[in-house]
Design a protein around this nucleic acid. Structure first.
Length: 292
DNA sequence: ACCGACACACCTAACGGCAC
DNA sequence: GTGCCGTTAGGTGTGTCGGT
């Protein structure tokens, strides 16, 4: 091995209690190609001088503190790990964590990887890396224990179930880590009013200038805020609504494509076909044939 | 919270292809 | 030929970045 940046680094001091558990797994090819899968998992009761330092390991590490205190260094910042905190690391990045000197540090942890694992990590760190503090830790703790138990028992279906468990666990964490702004109670009123208007009136032409005028707000600001709180642009929302209605008419009516376009507020057939194909991958008629 | 500028997605119009 | 579906090119409205 050379000495370039890609080199794997690991320094460890394992100071563990006797009832600690470390499971090392070898996932099947199916799991590696299609699932989120466990590489290692365990329950550690650690005490000083327990520590781990690593870099360039192709794995994600989730650690949940059951009790005691730990310390984490990641992306040049220090974090104190108390009871109930969770963190998720990309082990390619340099990281160091250790048990505190004062009291034992008790943790549940999983090293995982797999299809789209990085998507969850990126989603979770979209607004920067941080510890996650849970008010209700029951789901997380029981899920981690169940994953460990599945692998201890060598359960026949462990890979499939573990995939499901990791996905739902990460989904929960992503939702919890979202900034408060993204929850409904902080959404400006006019965002929902715009949505309602589009839902009611998508058959008519709807222009940004008119919306801005109606809600007495700058067009630019309105566009930006709508995208921020809904994840899509106003026009995209409008088109989604129209295409959804079109799909319903294609499936459950005998109307011609040109008629359907008109009924959905798109007064130009060719444009309707373009939009439909772009979103559904097939033209309206092909879609109709596939569904009837 | 608002605005200017610019890239680009959207929309329109014109037209080609196909079935009848 | 006629009607309907689908493609394409070019003008225009929209989204977004960066600034106030």
């Amino acid at each position: 091995m050379g000495c370039n940046m890609k080199d794997y680094l690991e320094r460890i001091s394992l100071t563990l209690s006797e009832n600690s558990i470390r499971l090392i797994e070898t996932a099947s090819q199916t799991a590696k190609n299609n699932y989120l899968y466990i590489q290692e998992a365990g329950y550690f009761q650690t005490r000083y001088p327990y520590f781990t330092e690593r870099q360039n390991l192709n794995s994600f590490l989730l650690v949940y503190t059951l009790s005691g205190n730990g310390r984490l260094l990641y992306e040049e910042k220090e974090y104190i790990l108390g009871k109930g905190t969770v963190f998720l690391l990309n082990c390619m990045n340099h990281h160091y964590y250790e048990s505190s000197k004062d009291e034992p540090w008790e943790i549940l942890w999983i090293h995982f990887n797999g299809f789209n694992a990085s998507v969850f990590y990126e989603e979770l760190t979209k607004y920067g890396f941080g510890l996650i503090n849970l008010t209700d830790t029951f789901m997380l703790e029981s899920t981690l224990r169940r994953i460990i138990s599945l692998h201890q028992r060598k359960d026949v279906h462990r890979e499939l179930i573990t995939n499901h468990l990791i996905v739902s666990l990460l989904t929960e964490l992503v939702l919890l880590s979202m900034p408060k702004d993204y929850f409904s109670y902080n959404i400006p009123k006019y965002i929902n009013l715009i949505k309602n208007k589009i839902n009611r009136e998508y058959i008519n032409p709807i222009r940004l200038d008119d919306l801005a005028l109606e809600f007495n707000i700058s067009k630019f600001h309105m566009s930006k805020e709508f995208k921020k709180y809904t994840g899509i642009t106003i026009n995209e929302y409008l088109i989604d609504r129209r295409i959804s209605h079109a799909k319903e008419l294609l499936k459950y009516s005998e109307l011609a494509v040109s008629e359907i376009a008109y009924h959905c507020g798109i007064n130009n057939v060719s444009h309707f076909i373009n939009l439909f194909k772009e979103r559904e991958g097939v033209t309206p008629n092909v879609f109709r044939r596939e569904w009837t």
